[in-house]
Amino acid sequence: MHYDIHGLTAPEAPTILLSSGLGGSGAYWTPQIAALAGHFRVITYDHRGCGKTGGVVPETGGIAAMADDVLEIVAELGLTRFHFMGHALGGLIGLDLALRRPNLIDKLILVNAWSKADPHSGRCFDVRLELLNASGVEAFVKAQPLFLYPAWWMSENAVRLAQDDAHGVAHFQGKENVTRRIAALRAFDVDARLSEIAAQTLVIATRDDLLVPYTRSLRLSEGLPNARLSLSDSGAHAVNIVFPDVFNRELLSFLTG
């Protein structure tokens, strides 16, 4: 597992581990790293099958296998307790860890995540897989921003998106890995077990998320005993990129409050 450590370096420093969504890249959290680095030892990592970790996503094991990858990093660093922030699929990893290893998780942040996949999200993934299988990698990558960002933001960041497209094609994680990762997040269901998670949790969602209905976050905030909901009108699925300053203030308030 490839991981990077930012910010505070002392082993005893308060630590937060960041897990990205389907793209699986630790670089997804770039807008948050500087804000967190003055307060925490910040750990980002590339999921199995992605980026510098590479390799093949196991055919079985689902989200639990992805959480086991995190535990490999935890063991190597000797972490005994840490904060965890996950975006979408990364949030599912956080929920799995909080259920299986509650002693490890201090505060939990879930960004546009879910306890059980919504049928609408399934429709979106069907379309994306059809693009991948019928039209190829370039079409799959080019469609990705449509599910991540508001239209106005894409209009204002056309050059950046073109660069992201080129990078996404050049470093594509592979059709088999994408298919298996989507299958894992679709199969994930801890809806009936939310009451077992005692960690203080910040649930962040946006009403204009095209990929994951914000009602999934409402369900998380209602089902988790110690959850706080931060719901905004705009920002879409990748709200931490669209509105990083607002996102970072809310995040630090929760972590340091």
Rank of each mutant, 00 (worst) to 15 (best):
A65V: 03
D164L: 14
A184R: 05
L110A: 08
L161P: 05
L77D: 04
G136R: 10
A158I: 10
H120E: 09
V190E: 00
A139P: 03
A184V: 01
A113K: 11
R180I: 05
A98Q: 11
E59C: 09
Q173N: 09
V169M: 11
D165N: 15
L132S: 11
I63G: 05
A158D: 11
A151V: 12
A162L: 11
T179Y: 02
L108R: 14
R181G: 08
R81Y: 00
W153T: 08
M66K: 09
D68C: 09
V127A: 15
I182L: 14
L89D: 13
P102V: 05
H120R: 15
K107R: 15
L92E: 10
Y149L: 14
A166H: 04
K107I: 06
S155K: 15
S115M: 00
G122K: 15
S121G: 14
F140K: 14
L148D: 13
R81H: 03
G86S: 03
I105E: 07
L104E: 07
L71I: 08
P102E: 07
L132Y: 01
L79P: 04
L77E: 06
D69L: 10
S115R: 00
E138D: 11
K107W: 02
N157M: 07
G62W: 01
H87K: 10
M154Y: 01
V74W: 01
A158N: 08
A170T: 04
A184D: 01
F188G: 06
D69Q: 12
L104S: 09
R128Q: 14
A64G: 07
A139C: 04
A139T: 08
A184Q: 01
V137I: 13
A113H: 04
A183F: 00
F172V: 08
L77R: 12
